[in-house]
Design a protein around this nucleic acid. Sequence first.
DNA 1: GAGCACTGC
Length: 692
Amino acid sequence: MSAKGFLKPKDDDFIPWTEDKLDVDAQKDTTFVYNSTPSLGLAAQRQKLPIFKTRDHILYMLEQFQVVIIVGETGSGKSTQIPQYLVEAGWCQEEGQMIGITEPRRVAATTLAARVAEEKHCPMGELVGYSIRFDEWFDRAKTKIKYMTEGILVREMMGDPLLKLYSVIMLDEVHERTAQIDIIMGLMKKILRKRRDLRVIISSATVDAEYIRDFFNANRTKDVSKDTAAIMSISGSNFSVEVFYLNEPCPNYVQSAVETVLKLHEREPPGDVLVFLTGMDEVDHCVTLLKERTSNKHSKHGLKIWPLPMYGSLPPQDQLKVFRPSLRGYRKIVVATNIAETSITIEGIVYVIDSGFVKLKWYNADTNVDALIVTEISQASAEQRAGRAGRTRPGQCYRLCREDDFQKLPLNTPPEMQRTDLSTAVLQLKALGIDNVVRFEFPSAPPSKNLMASLELLYALGAIDDNGLLTKPLGENMSELPIHPTLSKMLFSSTKFKCSREIAAIIAMLQIENIFIKPPGGQAGNRARVMKRKFEVAEGDHLTLLNVFNTYLKQKQWDIKLWCQQHFLKYKGLKRAEQLFEQLVRTLKRYDVPIQYSSDMDEIRRCIVSGLFPNAAYYHMSGSYRTIRGDIPLSVHPTSVLYTLKQPSWVVFTELAHSKKVHMKDITVIDPTWLEILAPHYYQKTTLQRSH
DNA sequence: GAGCACTGC
């Protein structure tokens, strides 16, 4: 059955291996006692889920252990069922106590809450509720099951350090190891020492279960009966997936993916295909190649192929196409970025082709910013991708590498904490009472170089003092805002420049990427360029964004969607910017910062420098920019308004994007004397003169 | 001449 060029691995259906391993471990830790309480009032449908037979087991484990790590595949129903079991078993009987469940994504929090509310036949926000930014639906008196995003729980910890509102916290999808979940786990370990009654359920899908158990296990003796954390596993309802490898390493995975699609298409029975590549360019290229190679060609099953791209920046109407079932006589080939690994699920996929690569954020301590780098995926990630083939029936996964090389891949993707800019996380930890972040028990310690760089930045911004303590009020106020510290500094210094309203607007706009729609080439492309030019100002991108935002607000009376369309602006993006803007204004008011309108563009630019001064660059005689500190060569990003204008001598930027070159994004033209005045502690006059 | 995916009182 296997397509040519692929070797069948030794009896290696990928699903059972984690499970077997973990089951053995769980058995070692404890003797299971099943109590036989009859489960009353449960819908028959719920009882059919694979998790149901382990219901009593889970409840038993929770009585024995403070922390229970549950390893289960998607489709086991753990995210919807466990909270209900807990309520049924009386874990929320105490007045006002709840079960809290964290999710890494907003959609997960809302859709899970909706499903559980439906199963419980209750209106949303009563017994079952959710809380995500800008949208919450729960009742302090009635809600017993609350789904939320991870960030929300971190915020709640700032006001309720022992999480007294909760009797059980369930952390879902912990294997994704977001920065927020690592903060939560580190703090949770401290909370558990103080609150013996609190229980934590950790749901994870991969091999890091043992690592997490050891992290939480408070038992330092050899006597396993004293363990406080244990693992149990739940089988899912996924079908088996047969895995194939290449005989020879492949030099070009896009090309190899195309060939694999074509071979598979000719030989294998009907069923849709999902191809994993790393970025938009590769996806578009692959789709083009597939279309070229297969015009009018039918497979032996009489099928034609229907290639579709899928990535985050694709217009929503095009994204929706991948969810449509294949037309009769067609085999759907979805060519996607990592978006299809966890964020979206496409039904009907039977074949997965995995390039083995992904673009990941990596912090660069030299430039002080995150860069996107094409990286080999981990084995765990590869399993997750393969699993996408087994959702409706047994599937196949073709890995575009040799099996030997696959075995050499890291088991897990490094947690976000070890890869990305830590300044926001460090500021949050300080606000959560962790004065010495170097000694904080991170589930996985970040590189100390990165930690030091973030402390240095926070110090330069004035958020922490000589002792590393949060300054009052600046550092404390900054930690409350869900934005990068350079931006929150900018916001709080806006009082001095009497332009808080405009700075809030600029920051809100910076949170939305690609506010300008770029139609694919031709006449529309030209019109879009003309429209964009209407908003552009020579001072740079920040003031251009302010211009767009202000003009948008003025249009409000009229048909705003049409206006956005005519000006090639994303209506949804602007709508969200407006929401963010209002939230920032509310926060400012809470701190008694007056909301001041300003039309003094120089003052606004000075205020921008007061936060972005660490990201300053000058025009070098070599014809490109250089960072003032470190002398790293930089270019203007093609989306910047400065790209087509005469290159100014001095700029500050918000972000860097690494591709072939390092590009500055969202730039403002500055006067170098502002750096001397606004950041004398950071730049010495001599450095600036040398650069000039 | 260029954009993995998320998130946040």
